[in-house]
Design a protein around this nucleic acid. Structure first.
Length: 285
DNA sequence: AACCAGGTTATAA
DNA sequence: TTATAACCTGGT
């Protein structure tokens, strides 16, 4: 399947793919990105406002990837909302084109458990190893790619074996969480129907999932846009912009951001994150 | 060689 | 309720 989408704006796939919300997109020599989403391989290249999407999936995969890329949302409108906060004017200008992907809750949960106290290169390597070791293969243009393994599969892996993927002490969290999901103790695919507070409370019961990871899961896979994950970058930029560069407790930053940005907090977080990480330097891999 | 990187957890005040 | 240390791994 191959399709061309036009007049997509604002949209910047490089920002989206390398922005830290997804870990399975890899830049090719020709400038395209290849990644596995769900059961299919996708190859995406952007030329201005046009998007070329290739996939081993069938035609009905187009709607799927449009949802994934959040193409049905009006980001012009959204950016107008953000610009009502005057201090965000340079942030929106810098980060425009970023989008919040709509990812799989299970994969997102495990990915962000791995992300804790870790950095992107390691996170990507570990996730890729896990998929290669336990995920089903997909052939795309003569090369092998691998799906993200199911909860049932990871629930059955031993801790020592999983540690071969360099996830370290997180191996235990991954397996225990997989067991809870596989057993049906937590129905992660229907969680989004509940209010944010309630979903968060459920998510943090999973081993390896704290406040920050829970908010990432909600924001990237459940469309809970009032979630506002605070990592060191967000902490830095919030302290810089609103707290006179003074070290401020996470709880205080959290409440501040939620009160100030409300329903669009998650979008603001993404734009701030990208701004905080990348302004004045090259885009980090 | 010591320290850090997109936090969570256990433990103690 | 809030603060502090330990934690796999890979890199500087």
């Amino acid at each position: 399947m191959r399709t061309v989408l036009k007049d997509i704006h604002p949209f910047n796939f490089q920002k989206i793919a390398d922005g830290g919300q997804a870990f399975r997109w890899n830049l090719q020599e020709d400038g395209a990105y290849i990644g596995v989403v769900g059961d299919s391989v996708f190859e995406i290249s952007q030329k201005g406002d046009g998007l070329v999407i290739e996939s081993n999936g069938e035609n009905d995969i187009i709607q799927f990837i449009k949802e994934y890329l959040d193409l049905n949302r009006n980001y012009n409108e959204l950016e107008m909302e953000m610009l009502k906060f005057k201090e965000l004017i340079p942030v929106v200008g810098f980060s425009s084109g970023y989008r919040i992907l709509y990812q799989d809750p299970w994969e997102t949960t495990i990915s962000f458990i791995i992300s804790a106290n870790n950095h992107i290169r390691n996170i990507k390597n570990t996730i890729e190893s896990i998929c290669r070791a336990y995920g089903e293969p997909i052939n795309y243009k003569g090369k092998m790619y691998y799906k993200f393994p199911s909860p049932e599969i990871l629930a059955g892996v031993s801790e020592d074996e999983l540690k071969c993927t360099k996830c370290g002490y997180r191996a235990r969290y991954i397996i225990e969480t997989a067991k809870i999901i596989a057993d049906g103790q937590l129905d992660i695919y229907n969680l989004n129907k509940k209010p944010t507070q309630e979903v968060r409370a459920k998510l943090v019961t999973l081993p390896g999932v704290g406040r920050k990871v829970a908010d990432c899961i909600m924001l990237y896979s459940m469309r809970k846009f009032d979630a506002f994950p605070i990592d060191v970058w967000i902490q830095r930029i919030l302290q810089h912009m609103y707290f006179d560069d003074k070290k401020t407790p996470l709880a205080k930053l959290q409440k501040f951001a939620e009160d100030r940005f409300g329903e669009i907090a998650g979008f603001v977080q993404q734009y701030l994150f990208y701004y905080s990480r990348n302004r004045g330097q090259d885009i980090v891999k």
